[in-house]
Design a binder for these strands. Structure first.
Length: 199
DNA sequence: AGGCCGATGCTCT
DNA sequence: GAGCATCGGCCTC
């Protein structure tokens, strides 16, 4: 995976990110956290009323106008972080919000970082954008981080890889985006179909 | 299973 | 000053 992957239409990137893996290295721990993305949303620019970039560049949304492959992390509701990967090309706004994932490796550490009172199921552990950043210990320190700047320097704080070849390709469905009040008709949310809903 | 609500502080008008 | 790309707890069905 390279910068060209993200230098495409935001909708295509959002769809193709499903199944990709995030690798998170934390200095205090030997083993990395690895999660598999299963839910994303596309956000564009002046043509997307739900996007932070809709009304042009501001101090907060500046990364969305930057080069593809960098992170756009923002703080919201006074307590949560959400992470995006920037798309399109330098100067054109676009980003994919990472909304959910399944723990693939390091689930003990993820549970520690989530540190809730309750013990969510594996499915509920990272099924939300703020849960994902909490489980991966991602905050504003990684805002603007370039996934492809120094790939020779290992380990990187955060890296992304294509879907594991042994994992069967899953069916991807498209729905309206969640938690927004503008452009609610656009089906720009992508997620994997649950195995099967049993009774 | 689903709806409501409070927490909590930044961002932009 | 209003509104948030949210979450978890508590309530009712």
């Amino acid at each position: 995976m390279d910068r060209d992957f993200f230098s495409r239409d935001t909708l295509d990137v959002a769809r193709d990110l499903i199944g990709c893996q995030l690798i998170r290295y934390l200095p205090a721990y030997d083993a990395p956290i690895i999660v598999t993305i299963n839910e994303t949303e596309a956000y564009k620019g002046s043509d997307d009323a739900a996007s932070h970039a809709y009304r042009g560049i501001t101090p907060r949304n500046r990364p969305m106008f930057g080069p593809p492959g960098i992170l756009y992390v923002y703080f919201t509701y006074g307590m949560h972080y959400c992470m995006n990967i920037v798309t399109e090309r330098d100067g054109v706004a676009g980003a994919v919000l990472l909304r959910g994932a399944i723990a693939t490796q390091g689930i003990e550490l993820i549970r520690q970082l989530r540190s809730g009172k309750t013990r969510p199921s594996d499915k509920q552990l990272l099924n939300g954008p703020a849960k994902l950043t909490q489980g991966l210990a991602i905050d504003l320190n990684l805002n603007g981080y370039d996934l492809f700047a120094d790939t020779s320097q290992q380990p990187q704080p955060l890296a992304i890889t294509p879907p594991a070849t042994e994992s069967p390709p899953s069916t991807i469905i498209q729905t309206p985006r969640i938690g927004i009040s503008q452009a609610t008709d656009l089906p720009w949310r992508f997620l994997t179909v649950p195995p099967h809903t049993t009774r």
